[in-house]
Nucleic acid binder design. Structure first.
Length: 246
DNA sequence: TCCTTCGCGCTCTGGATCAG
DNA sequence: CTGATCCAGAGCGCGAAGGA
């Protein structure tokens, strides 16, 4: 199409009424697929969205987590590609959501939404963790309770994550800032310990602003990981108490 | 009061068990 | 041995019950 024709159409569109533009959109939409999922499901995007709209709150809840994961893939991963990282996520189910690789090696990432309650981000008073008042929370645990037998025939809980299952925790800050592209990172090995052997606690405080434990820059977190520093988020007596439980 | 733990809707997968 | 069937575990987050 000649550039002038294209400009003419744009000009005509601007003069159309809302109804006319809607009719034109429908005509274009008839043979234009928005996303390949339409083909996978054999359903138009409008039907898929209506299904989500009708789904129970619990199902939509699930979707918010999946959206956070997709947002990481669509906003963070391409930006990191400019800085020498490539997506190296293997097929199948793993304790991590993404694996990124640069010339130094691979880094695994688990994405979680920061904890919300009644539509608002949870903010603790910090007492429990002995930290300054005002911390966001994140709940890094699997979503279904299960048990499995370990090597000694002992029954272990499968719901908690364990140290070493992922390198970096990426917390989506969408609930507090409304931006699906906003993530705050810390290291899996820095998270507070849970009750069981090698378990990560199911509740973790997240700094409201980047600090020495939490960063908004993935490269900084990768740097922390590769520096191999051994520590836990927060650095107080109460955290020491938690550590002593291990 | 605040923290911790559990269960839920929906769906898929893989392993165990059963019948033929 | 093969195919069918059953069931537990897992993916996702948040409300609510229970505990300190």
């Amino acid at each position: 199409m000649a550039e002038s024709t294209f400009a003419t159409i744009q000009h005509l569109l601007a003069e159309c009424s809302e109804d006319e533009r809607h009719a034109l959109f429908q005509a274009l939409r008839a043979d234009h697929q928005i996303h390949q999922l339409e083909q996978t499901f054999g359903a138009r995007a409008e039907v898929i969205l209506e299904a989500i709209h009708r789904a129970p709150e619990l199902t939509r809840r699930m979707l918010r987590g999946v959206i956070a994961d997709a947002a990481f893939a669509q906003s963070v991963v391409p930006a990191l590609a400019q800085r020498g990282w490539r997506d190296d996520t293997p097929d199948g189910n793993h304790a991590f959501d993404h694996r990124l690789r640069d010339t130094v090696g691979a880094v695994t990432v688990q994405v979680k939404l920061q904890r919300s309650e009644r539509g608002q981000p949870v903010v603790t008073n910090g007492r429990r963790f002995g930290l300054a008042a005002g911390m966001y929370m994140v709940e890094p645990q699997r979503t279904r309770t299960g048990k499995s037998l370990d090597g000694n025939g002992e029954e272990t809980k499968t719901r908690p994550y364990r140290y070493g299952e992922f390198d970096i925790l990426a917390v989506s800050l969408q609930p507090s800032c409304g931006d699906w592209g906003a993530f705050r990172y810390t290291l899996g090995n820095w998270l507070l310990p849970g009750a069981g052997p090698n378990e990560i606690a199911t509740y973790q405080p997240v700094a409201m602003r980047p600090n020495e434990d939490w960063t908004d820059d993935f490269d900084v977190a990768a740097g922390w990981l590769r520096a191999g520093m051994v520590k836990r988020i927060g650095n107080t007596n109460q955290v020491e108490d938690l550590l002593s439980r291990q």
